[in-house]
């Protein structure tokens, strides 16, 4: 996880387009400038970034479901619950399920756990639209390769 670059997902562990589920992992860095302010003397992963991690995991699921033809943009966060503190060095298991794929939007249920303990969960709504630029699509594919996006999963569906 490179928090400052908003790279919150280290690896896609599992992508199942039949069940419309994804599981990713990410390890919170042991040091970051973010922890200097959040909080001085008591570093905690900000809750908004946990929500972002759920959004990014969900986003990869939507990208997969649309075969890299559409880009999801976070539009709404509902029923977000931040249940446990996350500290530097902790490894997170992030799961998302595609609850509904509408025309131009998608809704996911996402959650994070660590060492079997529930960390947070939320229902997320995304606006889903064509990639604003070919360059962005290219960069997304590069990022996908870096985090182990299983391209073969797209061939099955």
């Amino acid at each position: 996880m490179r928090i400052e670059y908003f790279q919150l997902i280290d690896q896609i562990v599992e992508l199942d387009l039949d069940d419309r589920k994804i599981r990713t992992e990410a390890t919170v860095p042991t040091t970051s400038t973010i922890f200097e302010g959040h909080f001085p003397g008591y570093p905690l992963m900000p809750g908004v970034l946990l929500i972002e991690a759920m959004a990014q995991s969900s986003g990869w699921l939507v990208v997969a479901a649309t075969r890299f033809e559409r880009m999801p943009f976070l539009a709404a966060v509902k029923e977000a619950k931040l249940r446990s503190f996350v500290t530097p060095g902790q490894t997170l298991s992030i799961t998302a399920e595609l609850q509904h794929e509408g025309s131009g939007y998608a809704i996911t249920d996402a959650r994070i756990a660590s060492m079997g303990k529930a960390i947070c969960d939320a229902t997320l709504t995304f606006s889903v639209m064509p990639f604003p630029s070919a360059e962005m699509n290219k960069r997304m594919r590069e990022t996908a390769e870096r985090i182990g996006f299983p391209m073969e999963a797209l061939a099955d569906g």
Partner: peptide, 22 residues
């Protein structure tokens, strides 16, 4: 944004997919 919530509820209630993009 509110219309997305409405579309979701309509999609579910009627078992359809409103073709909003079209």
């Amino acid at each position: 944004l509110d219309f997305l919530d409405i579309a979701f509820a309509i999609d579910k209630a009627f078992g359809i997919k409103l073709p909003l993009e079209q």
